[in-house]
């Protein structure tokens, strides 16, 4: 596999100029995650409206191009979706990174799937999978209000 398949333009671009890298005003859910071996860290802020629709999502943190791009693309794509949809998309993404060849979610449009599949290059780099999945695990932790800091070393 060519290294350029991992570092596609879209990843480099999102890594350099991450979307939603800020803190949501009046957020009502949040969670922290960290990858102790790499030092990547992320803090996700969510604002859900009364119908549990994502009114705003943002993140703060630092990390490699893969982890920043993953958080950037994720936050862009989750905005405006409802909580059950969000959970379903997260599971679909994690399933794709882990083993599935493609994304199956009906809650994702084709162009959204294409964008997410740009992160599939990490499958060939087992040490880098955690970089791509950190913000996604942290998002679930925020939604479920587990109050537990996500630690990639303790995830299965």
């Amino acid at each position: 596999m060519n290294i350029k398949e991992l570092y596609q333009e879209i990843i480099l671009e999102h890594g350099k100029n991450p979307r939603n890298l800020r803190k949501t005003d009046n957020f009502n859910k949040d969670a922290k995650g960290n990858n102790p071996l790499c030092g990547d860290n992320v803090h996700i802020y969510l604002k859900l409206d009364e119908k549990k629709k994502v009114e705003d999502i943002s993140f703060e943190g630092s990390g490699c191009a893969i982890s920043m791009a993953s958080a950037s693309i994720m936050t862009d794509l989750i905005k405006g979706k409802e909580e059950p949809e969000v959970k379903e998309i997260v599971n679909d993404f994690l399933g794709m990174i882990k083993e599935n060849p493609e994304l199956k979610s009906k809650n994702l449009k084709e162009d959204e799937k294409t964008k997410l599949m740009c992160l599939s290059g990490v499958k060939q780099y087992p040490m880098r999978v955690k970089c791509a999945t950190l913000s996604w695990h942290t998002l679930i932790s925020a939604i479920d209000n587990t109050q537990e800091e996500i630690n990639t070393e303790q995830l299965g």
Binding site: I3, L6, Y7, C38, G39, D40, C64, I66, M127, R128
Partner: peptide, 27 residues
């Protein structure tokens, strides 16, 4: 400047160059 050490290490590895990235147990 502009490249995270983990990205450096992954890219160098592709050329067979083995380095380490991280805090090297010195946080």
């Amino acid at each position: 400047k502009g490249v995270h050490p983990h990205d450096i290490a992954t890219i160098l590895d592709e050329d067979g160059v083995a380095i380490r990235a991280g805090h090297h147990c010195c946080q």
